[in-house]
Design a protein around this nucleic acid. Structure first.
Lengths: 217, 217
DNA sequence: CAACAATCTGACCGATTGGTCAGGGTCACG
DNA sequence: CGTGACCCTGACCAATCGGTCAGATTGTTG
């Protein structure tokens, strides 16, 4: 009974397939995920409602639940790829490259992500702020492994005298903190700078200078 | 009708008085605010429930609503004093003091606050992350005024050659970002560093070094 | 154009939410 | 020790929440 062998062209399996099968599925799943990113990043998981997401996506609530089995599933689908996207710039840091260039490039790419993907940044910030209840394990396994790996690389660079001696872990934290701040605290930054200043212009120059001074032996 | 002249010993005015009148009021309002800080900072405003707050405070839900008229009012009471507490260290920055000492002290005090008051930090972060809907005006008036004021002081210091030339606003942002990161993203930082390392020990040394290098002409 | 799968909807459900209320217990003070 | 203000509670309410379902509508394919 629970199994359904003759599910040849069966309906209702939508939820079990990660990859959209039809054109309409592709379009609507995209609509929903985009709407959910908007709402979750602005309200947090518990603060967001399916009605908001449905309205933002231009669909009815039952229709949203036709494509995803639950609110949790939508949130999970968003977070699923996010950690990888988020850490891609750090992964791209090349142990064979020129140390200061590599770190400066990483920092610039992270700042670029804050500018181009502020909603993703806030989604992630909301999750971590509230104790990372739905991503938790990924932090102490994948994330920790990657950071430890790159920290070792940085330590080597320092040992070779190519970099000023700094704690590699806290160096990475400082890049996260300084770049993500401009996405996560956007309203505060803009409130202080006033409406006619682009935060990212000044941030780019300032962070270039800061890390140049920090890393030069 | 709306006015009530003969409110001699009337009950039910509890909500309109900011100052607790009796011993029990003082104790229970404190309990509620402390519980609310715990819950709001961990779940955000919409994610928190009155039942959670009541349970955390060891009171019944109707009893909580005996001391505060609504969930909003509890949240507002928490935020009311928070901005002032939060900015006190910046206010304490003395234009007459030694520039680098003043800024280093400010940074250290902010880091200390992240260590000692992480819940307040996260409450504030939640509010700003979600667009500061209930504090909004305070940012573009009080906060902006204070920051602009101190930025002018820093600009003077730089003009006198006592400080390396840096954008004062972004310097202040960098202090906020770097210190608050350790409170707001605590779980992430601890996940990366592992369970046996105190994030704040390393942070203290790292930030001292960073800002020394940044500010020395 | 039939016929079946895929898509969509209004109506509805139980659980949880913030908040109310009538009344009972407790405290302080004359 | 009584009396009135203060404190507290169980029971309850309307609104909103995430989610279900039967069936109408649309798309696709032979």
């Amino acid at each position: 009974m629970t199994d359904d062998p003759k599910s040849g062209g069966a309906t209702d399996l939508t939820h079990e397939n990660d990859k959209p099968r039809t054109r309409i599925q592709k379009v609507n799943r995209k609509k929903i995920l985009d709407a959910a990113l908007e709402v979750f990043s602005a309200q947090g998981f518990r603060g967001a409602t399916l009605d908001q997401i449905a309205a933002e996506a231009g669909l009815s609530k039952p229709n949203v639940l036709y494509y995803f089995p639950s609110k949790e599933a939508i949130h999970a689908a968003l977070l699923a790829g996010l950690l990888d996207i988020w850490l891609a710039p750090l992964r791209a840091m090349d142990p064979q490259g020129e140390p200061r260039d590599e770190i400066m490039s990483y920092m610039r790419r992270k700042l670029e992500m804050s500018r181009e993907m502020p909603r993703e940044s806030r989604l992630f910030a909301n999750e971590v702020l509230q104790g990372a209840p739905r991503i938790g394990d990924g932090l102490s396994t994948d994330l920790k492994a990657l950071v430890d790996d790159k920290a070792a690389v940085i330590r080597d660079w320092i040992a070779q005298g190519k970099l000023a001696p700094v704690d590699p872990h806290h160096l990475i934290f400082s890049i996260w903190a300084l770049t993500q701040h401009y996405a996560d605290f956007d309203v505060q930054v803009r409130a202080v700078l006033g409406p006619d200043t682009d935060p990212f212009d000044g941030a780019g120059k300032f962070l270039d200078m800061l890390f140049t001074r920090l890393l030069t032996p």
